[in-house]
């Protein structure tokens, strides 16, 4: 589904990714762990099309050259990024935003857009699944949301948009145990043979709930080791500093 070959990325002349390789097949859950500054967020930004990077290498998504697509086209094709720091959008009602988003994607795919009633039904169902207080959806998007509410809102969006590839950029940072469980349940409920996940994290904690199929260690812009869930446990013991 996603294939990354020898990906290099620079920002302001500083090389951040130095030849990264990764393959994700449908239905797989991959975790990328790494210390601060190793290039984790850069990778998620590049996959979702953020501007400002000088990029070399090859990235394909369902056989298509991903790097040529605009951010919104990637969303239309089924890539979703749960932000580490979701943006606050003043004056925009969360429900209005969710409806605009899902219908933009449906329209691009040539599917029928949801009317108000269908949309409300979907929202009710998904909010209940994620134990998400619906009242929050009548507030301005992420404005005055707590850290946990913002992250849960990301997961709600993910679950509504039902993407093929979900990238979670340190979604676990700043979450309490209950919120962490809800986020994990959100991911697990979307898991099926078609949907894949790329979970970026510092800690093993989230992975205990999600149980990824593969764990990769990112250090200095490269994946230095790949393995299964046991690798995460080993990392937690040894620490990034001494891990080679």
């Amino acid at each position: 589904m996603l294939s990354i070959e020898n990906l290099k990325a620079k920002i302001d002349e500083k090389e951040i990714l130095k030849g990264l390789n990764l393959n994700i097949k449908p239905g797989e859950v991959h975790a990328i762990m790494g210390p601060n500054g190793s290039g984790k967020s850069t990778l998620s930004n590049i996959l979702s099309g953020k501007k400002g990077y000088e990029i070399n290498g090859k990235v394909t998504f369902d056989g298509e050259n991903l790097l040529e697509l605009e951010t919104e086209e990637r969303a239309h094709k089924g890539i979703f990024l749960a932000f580490q720091y979701p943006m606050e959008i003043p004056g925009v009602n969360t429900n209005t935003f969710l409806k605009t988003s899902i219908n933009a994607i449906k329209k691009a795919r040539g599917e029928k857009e949801l009317d108000a009633i269908e949309f409300l039904k979907l929202i009710k169902e998904k909010s209940a699944e994620l134990k998400f207080d619906e009242k929050i959806l009548n507030r301005q998007l992420n404005v005055g949301f707590s850290g946990g509410e913002k992250k849960k809102n990301e997961i709600l969006q993910m679950s509504i948009l039902n993407p093929k590839l979900s990238i979670l950029d340190e979604t676990d940072s700043g979450l309490d145990i209950d919120a962490l469980r809800i986020v994990s349940e959100g991911v697990n409920s979307l898991r099926n043979k078609n949907n894949s996940f790329l979970i970026i994290t510092h800690y093993q904690r989230l992975l205990d709930y999600i149980k990824p199929d593969f764990v990769h260690v990112l250090k200095n812009g490269q994946i230095i080791k790949s393995g299964d869930f046991e690798l995460a446990k080993e990392l937690e013991k040894v620490g990034y500093e001494d891990f080679n």
């Binding site: 953020k50 605009e70 919104e72 239309h76 959008i89 004056g91 925009v92 935003f97 988003s101």
Partner: peptide, 22 residues
């Protein structure tokens, strides 16, 4: 970027942000 990553085009995102602002 946040709005575009949710499927809105650049101009739709800009419009939503300015409308929200007002």
């Amino acid at each position: 970027f946040y709005l575009m990553s949710r499927g809105l085009s650049y101009s739709e995102s800009k419009k939503l942000l300015t409308n929200g602002f007002l």
